[in-house]
Design a protein around this nucleic acid. Structure first.
Lengths: 105, 105
DNA sequence: CCAACATGCAACTAATTGGTTGCATGTTTT
DNA sequence: AAAACATGCAACCAATTAGTTGCATGTTGG
């Protein structure tokens, strides 16, 4: 996964409205635009723009069904983000381990 | 961990310059402002602002030492971010499991 | 067929952000 | 003490972003 893709992912998650949308979709049930736009405190068109941002960051996919559009989470994006953080932590832990070895000598 | 804190964390990581800073610090070696500002393609003062953003998001801590200031990663923030994503994935997997059960009947 | 519905798109505004430059201040080194 | 160094801070600018409104378009139900 490219550096830029990870940045895009975290940027997408780094907004209260978008994160809330992701949370609502995390139970696996796809919701259509209209439903998803409710209770966000912003207009439908405003919500639409945030959803589009999630699409661009590959956090979410759109599936048109008749006159409505289902929005579905793409959990692989989440996994990639988690893996990225885990890799950072691994480096960190490795260093701490080395320091521990050093002080124990 | 509050919703807002997670948003702040992801927002902090959702920028190429800041993510690069975090990566440089992930090996556990604290760097001072000056070193950290190099090779980012921006001015020292510009880099400083990004570092401050990381401080605000609790991704990094500052430790003044004489005339310089050491910047150290706070890995607990990373862990909290990873845990948050893992929780979303858990919900997701749970739902997939339920769907599998359903189709197998 | 027509009304109600779900959505898309463009133009616009206000706020935030990422960056700059210039200058001030405290700390080493010689 | 003076020069060099590491940093801090404020003012400013350009670009991006988050949101709005208004209107157009395709779809479904009676």
């Amino acid at each position: 996964m490219s550096q830029a893709a990870v940045v895009q992912l975290f940027k997408a998650l780094g907004d209260p409205v978008r994160l809330q949308i992701v949370q609502r979709l995390s139970n696996g049930v796809p919701l259509c635009m209209g439903e998803l736009s409710k209770d966000l405190g912003i207009s439908r068109q405003g919500a639409r723009k945030q959803i589009q941002a999630l699409v661009t960051a590959n956090v979410v996919q759109l599936h048109p069904v008749g006159r409505e559009v289902k929005v579905q989470l793409d959990a692989t994006a989440l996994t990639q983000g988690r893996d990225f953080i885990a890799a950072l932590e691994a480096q960190w832990d490795q260093r701490l381990q080395a320091l521990k070895q050093f002080t124990e000598q």
